[in-house]
Amino acid sequence: MKIRIKFAKYGTMKFIGHLDMMRFFQKAIRRAGIDIKYSEGFSPHQIMSFAAPLGVGIESCGEYMDIEVLSMTSTQDIKDALNRVMVDGVEVLSVTVLPEQAKNAMASVAAASYRLQMKEGAFPIDHLEDKVKAFYGEESIPYTKETKKSVVEVDLKQGIYEIGVDSDGAIMMLVNASSSGNIKPTVVFEKLCQFVNLEIPQLSYQVTRLETYTDIAKAGEEHVFIPLADVG
């Protein structure tokens, strides 16, 4: 049986990297006594798939991982058992059963929404809302993406589905988070700062991932994003 677990990661836990979070959950699942399925072979490992890696320093209330279990009483029991063995800063928000044919969390990811909130004492941007509008109104937002292997020119605008400012003055955005076209919220922020001609240190904003989405639109149609937890 395939199970999808949604969790939040915040506070001091934002300093724990992606691989260490996987290790954390492997041990947590053992502490919780969940009847997880193991792979075959000489060194069996838990069948587990994480959705989209979260950068160190970023908080989230929309993280996902899928596991396969051999047996369970109810999704509520799994949620409770996991929450009993969590630490401060990690909380299991929901546990759902996936349809057998569902793609795993990692393959399903299409987009993610983020909130960039100014930290206390950080430099505010005047007329932020107008500036964000003007920024998004540009024809294209060229960005030079440097990876270990290559340097590619990309147009960020293609991958920014929504961007705006909420009532608290935080920047909200919905961007591509798929494995092929992932956009980092910090990169968008960096380009925005360039656009308004301001030098703002990246760490003056706390980034939070709000939700991770999959796209249920048919090929060629407009995107239809739904949270990963709503599959099935």
């Binding site: 001091t12 300093f15 947590a28 160190v56 320093g57 630490v87 800063g89 760490l203």
Partner: peptide, 15 residues
């Protein structure tokens, strides 16, 4: 913490 290698060395909070 974002500057140093392995910030998890300094935050405590372990199980």
């Amino acid at each position: 913490l974002m500057q140093v290698e392995k910030p998890a060395r300094y935050i405590g909070n372990e199980v």
